[in-house]
């Protein structure tokens, strides 16, 4: 077989060109990775192969999360959650706060009280996130739960009404998810087609990773250095609630921060609950609710919502996974 000299010289030239493209071709599309402390955690936004102007969009996404934090934190002059707590009657709030509360009430109702945004007094009583956490007396817990329950907040448009004037609103189990959603929307509206908004392990992935879905590691609840599973997903939010996140120990017993609103004590049926949902606000609320309800009722709750899946580690270490995740999970 004869080859022309042209073809023979072309072969190494083409190989050289391919190498140069592989090595330097994507130089104008470097990743943008920014981090900020927000909402009591480290928020990281990653945009791989970022087009020009992405850094500005990321800055605006962080500013939006900060705005949501100010709006929904339990205290502070600009907080609508604090204004609801202080109100003795119906109060008009912005459409975003009303939207978050309406979503939270839906989860509260469908979970039979496994989720509650009126636990402000209970959380203050335990003080788990303060310098001096303590185990309250049973009568103190009963008192802090007065007025709480699946119907403790009502919305009518942008008007919010508490069932009990003493109710202290805490949107901590849903507001972070909403802030993630807002940041993701800013990025999408700015033309970003691939990104991760990660707020301390609660996250939203935009698009895919390029030639494959995003690979989302799920932390093992009892081995901080190990993975429980890896999920291959695109365009979803993933939130994990676990009893290992924040806790204290007293008299040889561990008390974590995920309270069962029906008892006022840390929920004891699960070690961790991961929820995959179309929005981070929904995933956030459902992860808390399903953690509280445990394997059977928790996974049944997820079925009430469209495109929602879950992975739960029960208190005894048994792993439960919903049908829709079975083809997307990889075990270590």
């Amino acid at each position: 077989m004869r080859y022309s000299r042209f073809f023979i010289l072309l072969l190494p030239a083409a190989a050289l060109a391919a190498f140069l493209f592989w090595r330097f071709g994507a130089a104008g599309e470097e990743s943008v990775v920014r981090r900020q402390f927000l909402m009591g955690t480290l928020v990281e936004i990653t945009v791989p192969a970022a087009p020009s102007g992405t850094a500005d969009a990321v800055d605006r996404a962080f500013a939006e999360m900060r705005r949501v934090e100010e709006l929904m934190r339990p205290d502070g002059p600009g907080s609508e959650a604090a204004a609801i707590t202080a109100a003795e009657g119906p109060i008009e709030v912005g459409s975003e706060t009303a939207e978050v509360i309406a979503l939270g009430m839906k989860v509260a109702r469908l979970s039979g009280g496994g989720f509650d945004m009126g636990l402000g007094r209970l959380k203050t009583l335990w003080g788990i996130e303060t310098e001096h956490p303590r185990v309250p007396k049973p009568e103190e817990i009963l008192s802090a739960l007065e007025g709480t329950g699946p119907e403790d907040l009502m919305t009518d448009g942008n008007r919010v009404l508490k069932s009990d004037p003493r109710l202290a609103v805490d949107l901590g189990a849903i507001a972070k998810g909403f802030a993630i959603d807002r940041a993701a929307e800013i990025l999408r509206n700015s033309g970003v087609t691939r990104a991760v908004v990660n707020a301390g392990g609660d996250l939203c992935v935009i698009g895919d990773r390029g030639d494959r879905p995003w690979r989302i590691g799920i932390q093992h609840p009892r081995d901080p250095g190990a993975l429980l599973a890896t999920l291959s997903l695109e365009n979803v939010s993933v939130v994990t609630s676990g009893d290992y996140e924040r806790f204290f120990e007293a008299q040889g017993q561990r008390y974590h921060h995920l309270f069962d609103p029906r008892t006022g004590y840390p929920a004891g049926l699960a070690q961790s609950m991961t929820v995959v949902a179309p929005s981070a606000a929904l995933a956030d609320a459902l992860a808390t609710a399903a953690f509280v309800l445990g394997p059977e009722q928790g996974l049944a709750l997820l079925k009430e919502f469209s495109q929602v899946e879950g992975l739960l580690v029960a208190a005894d270490g048994t792993i439960f996974i919903s049908e829709g995740l079975r083809e997307k999970v990889e075990w270590p």
């Binding site: 392990g201 996250l203 992935v205 690979r215 799920i218 994990t240």
Partner: peptide, 9 residues
């Protein structure tokens, strides 16, 4: 080398 892109915890 990591086996995942991002960690949920």
């Amino acid at each position: 080398e990591k086996t995942y892109d991002v960690l949920s915890r």
